[in-house]
Design a protein around this nucleic acid. Sequence first.
DNA 1: ATTATCCGGGG
DNA 2: GTGTACGGATAAT
Length: 801
Amino acid sequence: MRLSFYPVDVTYVVRDGRAAILLYGRDVSGRQVCVVDDSFEPYFTVVGNIDPVLLEALRDGDFFVTRVEKVNKNLNEHDVDALRVFTNLPKGVPVLKDLAKSIPGVAVYEYDVLFARRYLIDKRIIPMVRTEVEGEEVQLGFRVPCLRVSKIWQEADDILAPRVLAVDIETYNPDNKVNMKKNPILMIGLYGANFSRVVTWKKFSSKLDYVEFVGSEADMLKRFVELVHECGPDVITGYFSDGFDFPYLAERAKVCKVQLDIGLDGSKIDIAGKIENEARIAGISHVDIFKFVRRVMSRSLKTDVFTLDAVSKELLGAQKHKVDMNRLAPAWDECSQDLEEFCKYNLQDCKLTYDLAVKVLPLLLEFVRIIRLPPYDINRMPFSTFVEWYLIHQAAGRNEIILNRPSRDMEGGRMADRVKGAFVFEPKPGFYEKIAVFDYRSLYPSIIASHNISKGVLNCNCCTDGPTIDTERGKFRYCAKRKGLFSEVIQELILRRAEIKKEIKKSQDPLLAARSEALKVLANSFYGYMGFAPARWYCIECAESTTAWARHYIHKAIETAQQAGFTVLYSDTDSVFLLLDKKSKDEALALVEQVNKSLPGLMELDFEGFYPSGVFVSLKAGEAGAKKKYALLDEKGNMKIKGFESVRRNWSFIAKDVQKRVLEIILKDHDAKKAKAYVRQVVDDLRKNKIPLDKVVIHTALSKGTGAYSSIGPHVAAARRLESQGVEVGSGTIVKYVVIKGKGKIRDKVRLPHEAKQDDYDGEYYIQNQVVPGVERIFAVLDIKVDDLISETKQSSLSGF
DNA sequence: ATTATCCGGGG
DNA sequence: GTGTACGGATAAT
């Protein structure tokens, strides 16, 4: 019997003393199935001068070696004769490899690659991609039909469009603390394509068609299992569902003595993980959107908090349904009509999670396709291991032995290795006109590709004329004859991305954007990987060479520009800011051409943009982290602001407004006097309390409970006021407050916004602590002192007349 | 300055 | 599951 299906989840079971790989998925007719392969045997690899008979004899309890095969492999990109040692069970591998390792002259490899992953590597199966199988039906007592395969292969590259179901729970939580054993779940929301449901166990009158009432919490949990089965999702998703919803559901199921058997094999949700919970459901890919967004997408998002509300706002332009969560428990106790609002809230959370899943799954699935691991694994994998797993698959495809992870000691030793970083040319603070910016396109990846930087070809024995680089650590040479592993795979990533970018110009397919993004992120992670202590293919010499070449090339661009008569304003890592002065844009472009002619391989200097004006600001002592602090105005009149991020959410609107407006006046009008007059006006208005009260409200997030602070900052004082008014506050609560006039400590002058009137706030405080810090560095550049901005106006000083 | 710990998200 | 743990900010030494 022939079957065509998309594997979603891959695991294994041991039956009758034999391991069987299980590939759950959906076949082309839309049916969920499980494909069973019991022909794959666990093994590890041995290198060394040893008689195979010694290995065949290894045994420890129930674990034993079944056979030994000679294989020809590459070890660190060199030919080697190896032995493949097969064991009866996967769990036997770590035990038997220890025995093998104790034999003198033996090195062991590939003993820690999980069995199911080993299967994907060796069979060259990419999860979520269409897979062909031949086999016969078997009865395993699963919820889905099972097929025992005799043959499995992939020939097409189309990917499953997964059926997605979003889940969210609301819990009874009267004391603001999570207590899974004590407090019940009140409602469970589910949302999928053409499906909305909220199940709850207290009856109140409601016209909402998606609300379903059951008799008890236990009934609700049972109904949840039924509904999941009805939907039959490939992907079940939640927001922080690894850490909250699923552990909660599992715990309540225990308390209520309900079998939460939603796995396709009839198993329960499996909550694992030592540091962070992970919730696994057999046969279904559980995707925790929060984990993916925070780990993989955080750098490309503006928000610095990753709540469902903030992330939805940015990615979807939608927000949570507004309710007062502190009212949920009382409403439940009173069985109040308000519960309807909480049902709306519950469903909206599900919908947001679903919409987010639809939005981010293309990127996640693109990583699945490139890295060749199931969505569940990609979702939870630390970003650092993306490169590792990409390398593992690429290496295996090249008949390379997968290198071992370092021991604890080795890792500790590696920690001390420091790589000399990038070159930075500090800008001279000031206001400038006509700035041209160049940058090297994907500098580090293109250096690795173009200079053949790779662990296996470092200081090779086969030639001596390869490219050489002087570094802090010594002189390194990379083979001129053979392309190394890193260099080759990163080159493939760069070239594939270039092709996709061409396609993007022709078509608007959002999948192409996801693909390009995934390739870029992966290529950019290689440099970090080479210097990452726990890496299998750790190569500090490679990392050192990469930055050394980067410094070489940025210096080259700077020198070429200077020889052509340009003034270099600023440079950092891969970019150069030039002052055009009397030169034309064409001359700047010609300069780029000139540099590019001398660059090897895939390296390329790009013209990033032309800016009519810009201002570079000096740094305060202790501001070492933010090397760059500048604002540029592009030809369309847009401001590009870097490094002024001290103006964040714990600043009042007035401070943010003033900083932005000052930069605008300086860059657009080139008028220092006007900027000064503007600030003086604001200062005057603050003194006279003419700036609206809502502009001086300061927002700060609490990092812990109010009792836990040893020093009472203004936001803590405000939080305590809130508490004294009966409002629950805790870690994460955003506290809003204003500072009012009066003597004494700031914390004593803190009031909640509703407690203060327009005339109460302390203008002088806002001038000194909010407005001035935001703009003083900018005015320093223009030779205007703080005193000029805030001294009492002549009118007021004459008013004593 | 450098190292330990805490926290994120969720109700 | 042939298992291992993130990363940034802040507090503590």
